[in-house]
Amino acid sequence: MRRPTLTALVVIIGLLLLADTLVVNAALSQLAGVAVDAAILVAAGAALAGVAALGVRRVQDLWRQRGDPIGAVFVIAGMAAMLAAGLRPGSAGTTDPAVQWLVAALLVPIGATLFGLLFVTTLGAARRALATRTREGILLVAGALVTTVLLLPLSGSAGAGLADAATWSLAFPIGAVFRGLLIGIALLSAVYAARVLLGIRAADE
Protein backbone atom coordinates (compact mmCIF):
# COMPACT_ATOMS: atom_id res chain seq x y z
CA MET A 1 0.00 0.00 0.00
CA ARG A 2 1.31 3.45 -0.86
CA ARG A 3 1.64 6.02 1.89
CA PRO A 4 1.64 9.53 0.39
CA THR A 5 3.42 11.15 3.36
CA LEU A 6 6.32 8.70 3.21
CA THR A 7 6.59 8.89 -0.57
CA ALA A 8 6.64 12.68 -0.17
CA LEU A 9 9.48 12.38 2.36
CA VAL A 10 11.49 10.27 -0.08
CA VAL A 11 10.89 12.78 -2.87
CA ILE A 12 11.70 15.82 -0.71
CA ILE A 13 14.94 14.32 0.66
CA GLY A 14 15.94 13.02 -2.77
CA LEU A 15 15.25 16.23 -4.67
CA LEU A 16 16.95 18.31 -1.98
CA LEU A 17 20.13 16.25 -2.23
CA LEU A 18 19.98 16.17 -6.01
CA ALA A 19 19.50 19.93 -6.21
CA ASP A 20 22.46 20.41 -3.89
CA THR A 21 24.59 18.35 -6.28
CA LEU A 22 23.67 20.57 -9.22
CA VAL A 23 23.20 24.06 -7.70
CA VAL A 24 25.63 26.04 -5.56
CA ASN A 25 23.58 27.72 -2.84
CA ALA A 26 24.57 28.18 0.80
CA ALA A 27 21.10 27.72 2.29
CA LEU A 28 20.43 24.67 0.13
CA SER A 29 23.81 23.26 1.07
CA GLN A 30 23.02 23.69 4.77
CA LEU A 31 19.70 21.88 4.40
CA ALA A 32 21.33 19.13 2.34
CA GLY A 33 23.96 18.79 5.07
CA VAL A 34 21.21 18.05 7.58
CA ALA A 35 19.77 15.41 5.23
CA VAL A 36 23.19 13.80 4.70
CA ASP A 37 23.81 13.70 8.46
CA ALA A 38 20.34 12.21 8.94
CA ALA A 39 21.07 9.52 6.33
CA ILE A 40 24.36 8.67 8.10
CA LEU A 41 22.61 8.42 11.48
CA VAL A 42 19.86 6.26 9.95
CA ALA A 43 22.54 3.92 8.56
CA ALA A 44 24.08 3.62 12.03
CA GLY A 45 20.64 2.98 13.55
CA ALA A 46 19.85 0.41 10.85
CA ALA A 47 23.11 -1.38 11.63
CA LEU A 48 22.11 -1.60 15.28
CA ALA A 49 18.64 -2.81 14.23
CA GLY A 50 20.15 -5.63 12.17
CA VAL A 51 22.48 -6.69 14.96
CA ALA A 52 19.73 -6.51 17.59
CA ALA A 53 17.32 -8.49 15.39
CA LEU A 54 19.91 -11.24 14.90
CA GLY A 55 20.73 -11.31 18.62
CA VAL A 56 17.07 -11.49 19.66
CA ARG A 57 16.38 -14.23 17.13
CA ARG A 58 19.28 -16.33 18.33
CA VAL A 59 18.31 -15.87 22.00
CA GLN A 60 14.78 -17.01 21.09
CA ASP A 61 16.24 -20.02 19.24
CA LEU A 62 18.14 -20.93 22.36
CA TRP A 63 15.20 -20.32 24.68
CA ARG A 64 12.78 -22.37 22.60
CA GLN A 65 15.34 -25.06 21.74
CA ARG A 66 14.79 -24.71 17.99
CA GLY A 67 17.25 -24.75 15.10
CA ASP A 68 20.89 -25.18 16.07
CA PRO A 69 21.22 -24.20 19.75
CA ILE A 70 25.01 -24.56 19.75
CA GLY A 71 25.19 -22.34 16.67
CA ALA A 72 23.04 -19.77 18.47
CA VAL A 73 25.44 -19.87 21.42
CA PHE A 74 28.35 -19.16 19.07
CA VAL A 75 26.54 -16.19 17.48
CA ILE A 76 25.66 -14.70 20.86
CA ALA A 77 29.11 -15.42 22.28
CA GLY A 78 30.83 -13.76 19.29
CA MET A 79 28.59 -10.73 19.52
CA ALA A 80 28.98 -10.45 23.31
CA ALA A 81 32.75 -10.90 23.18
CA MET A 82 33.20 -8.12 20.63
CA LEU A 83 30.85 -5.73 22.42
CA ALA A 84 32.39 -6.47 25.83
CA ALA A 85 35.89 -5.93 24.44
CA GLY A 86 34.97 -2.60 22.86
CA LEU A 87 32.50 -1.17 25.36
CA ARG A 88 33.88 -2.23 28.75
CA PRO A 89 34.97 0.67 31.00
CA GLY A 90 38.38 1.94 29.93
CA SER A 91 38.23 0.34 26.50
CA ALA A 92 39.53 2.33 23.51
CA GLY A 93 36.72 1.03 21.30
CA THR A 94 37.72 -0.47 17.97
CA THR A 95 41.39 0.31 18.53
CA ASP A 96 41.42 -1.48 21.89
CA PRO A 97 43.93 -4.39 21.98
CA ALA A 98 41.16 -6.81 23.02
CA VAL A 99 39.11 -5.90 19.92
CA GLN A 100 42.23 -6.12 17.74
CA TRP A 101 42.92 -9.55 19.21
CA LEU A 102 39.44 -10.81 18.34
CA VAL A 103 39.78 -9.41 14.82
CA ALA A 104 43.22 -10.96 14.22
CA ALA A 105 42.63 -14.29 15.98
CA LEU A 106 39.09 -15.06 14.85
CA LEU A 107 37.37 -12.63 12.48
CA VAL A 108 40.07 -12.41 9.81
CA PRO A 109 41.16 -16.09 9.75
CA ILE A 110 37.60 -17.51 9.65
CA GLY A 111 36.44 -15.02 7.02
CA ALA A 112 39.54 -15.30 4.85
CA THR A 113 39.66 -19.11 4.94
CA LEU A 114 35.98 -19.28 4.09
CA PHE A 115 36.60 -17.24 0.94
CA GLY A 116 39.68 -19.33 0.17
CA LEU A 117 37.47 -22.43 0.07
CA LEU A 118 35.56 -20.72 -2.73
CA PHE A 119 38.44 -21.53 -5.09
CA VAL A 120 37.31 -25.16 -5.00
CA THR A 121 33.59 -24.36 -5.11
CA THR A 122 34.00 -21.81 -7.95
CA LEU A 123 35.74 -24.45 -10.06
CA GLY A 124 32.86 -26.80 -9.28
CA ALA A 125 30.35 -24.12 -10.27
CA ALA A 126 32.16 -23.54 -13.56
CA ARG A 127 31.97 -27.26 -14.33
CA ARG A 128 28.27 -27.23 -13.49
CA ALA A 129 27.81 -24.29 -15.90
CA LEU A 130 29.08 -26.66 -18.62
CA ALA A 131 26.71 -29.38 -17.47
CA THR A 132 23.81 -27.17 -18.57
CA ARG A 133 24.88 -28.08 -22.14
CA THR A 134 24.39 -24.54 -23.40
CA ARG A 135 26.66 -22.62 -25.73
CA GLU A 136 26.62 -19.80 -23.17
CA GLY A 137 28.16 -22.15 -20.60
CA ILE A 138 30.91 -23.14 -23.02
CA LEU A 139 31.72 -19.49 -23.82
CA LEU A 140 31.69 -18.55 -20.12
CA VAL A 141 34.14 -21.28 -19.16
CA ALA A 142 36.29 -20.67 -22.24
CA GLY A 143 36.58 -17.01 -21.21
CA ALA A 144 37.59 -18.07 -17.69
CA LEU A 145 40.16 -20.50 -19.09
CA VAL A 146 41.76 -17.86 -21.32
CA THR A 147 42.09 -15.24 -18.57
CA THR A 148 43.50 -17.82 -16.14
CA VAL A 149 46.16 -18.77 -18.69
CA LEU A 150 46.97 -15.09 -19.30
CA LEU A 151 47.63 -14.61 -15.59
CA LEU A 152 50.11 -17.52 -15.26
CA PRO A 153 53.16 -16.25 -13.33
CA LEU A 154 55.85 -17.13 -15.85
CA SER A 155 59.05 -15.22 -16.54
CA GLY A 156 61.05 -14.81 -19.75
CA SER A 157 59.59 -14.37 -23.19
CA ALA A 158 56.58 -16.60 -22.44
CA GLY A 159 55.73 -14.52 -19.37
CA ALA A 160 56.23 -11.26 -21.28
CA GLY A 161 53.97 -12.54 -24.07
CA LEU A 162 51.25 -13.50 -21.59
CA ALA A 163 51.55 -10.13 -19.82
CA ASP A 164 51.28 -8.27 -23.16
CA ALA A 165 48.27 -10.36 -24.17
CA ALA A 166 46.64 -9.71 -20.77
CA THR A 167 47.25 -5.96 -21.11
CA TRP A 168 45.85 -5.94 -24.65
CA SER A 169 42.79 -7.99 -23.70
CA LEU A 170 42.06 -5.64 -20.81
CA ALA A 171 42.51 -2.56 -22.95
CA PHE A 172 40.43 -3.78 -25.87
CA PRO A 173 37.93 -6.65 -25.82
CA ILE A 174 37.40 -7.15 -22.09
CA GLY A 175 37.78 -3.44 -21.32
CA ALA A 176 35.19 -2.51 -23.96
CA VAL A 177 32.76 -5.13 -22.63
CA PHE A 178 33.25 -3.87 -19.08
CA ARG A 179 32.64 -0.28 -20.19
CA GLY A 180 29.37 -1.32 -21.86
CA LEU A 181 28.37 -3.14 -18.71
CA LEU A 182 29.28 -0.17 -16.50
CA ILE A 183 27.32 2.28 -18.66
CA GLY A 184 24.36 -0.13 -18.70
CA ILE A 185 24.36 -0.48 -14.92
CA ALA A 186 24.69 3.30 -14.50
CA LEU A 187 21.74 3.84 -16.88
CA LEU A 188 19.54 1.35 -15.02
CA SER A 189 20.52 2.83 -11.64
CA ALA A 190 19.74 6.33 -12.88
CA VAL A 191 16.35 5.31 -14.29
CA TYR A 192 15.38 3.39 -11.15
CA ALA A 193 16.51 6.25 -8.89
CA ALA A 194 14.63 8.79 -11.03
CA ARG A 195 11.44 6.71 -10.71
CA VAL A 196 11.81 6.71 -6.92
CA LEU A 197 12.44 10.46 -6.85
CA LEU A 198 9.47 11.19 -9.11
CA GLY A 199 7.25 9.18 -6.82
CA ILE A 200 6.51 6.57 -9.50
CA ARG A 201 7.90 3.87 -7.20
CA ALA A 202 6.78 4.27 -3.59
CA ALA A 203 9.28 4.02 -0.75
CA ASP A 204 7.49 1.10 0.86
CA GLU A 205 7.11 -0.95 -2.33
Binding site: F119, L123, A126, R127, L130, I138, V141, A142, A144, L145, T148, V149, L151, L152, P153, L154
Partner: peptide, 16 residues
Protein backbone atom coordinates in the same frame (compact mmCIF):
# COMPACT_ATOMS: atom_id res chain seq x y z
CA UNK B 1 50.01 -20.01 -7.53
CA UNK B 2 51.22 -21.65 -10.72
CA UNK B 3 50.21 -25.07 -9.42
CA UNK B 4 46.74 -23.87 -8.42
CA UNK B 5 46.23 -22.08 -11.73
CA UNK B 6 47.33 -25.17 -13.66
CA UNK B 7 44.87 -27.24 -11.64
CA UNK B 8 42.15 -24.71 -12.54
CA UNK B 9 43.15 -24.79 -16.20
CA UNK B 10 43.16 -28.60 -16.16
CA UNK B 11 39.76 -28.87 -14.45
CA UNK B 12 38.14 -26.28 -16.70
CA UNK B 13 39.96 -27.48 -19.82
CA UNK B 14 38.97 -31.13 -19.26
CA UNK B 15 35.32 -30.22 -18.74
CA UNK B 16 35.34 -27.80 -21.66
Amino acid sequence: LLLGMLVAVAVLGQAL
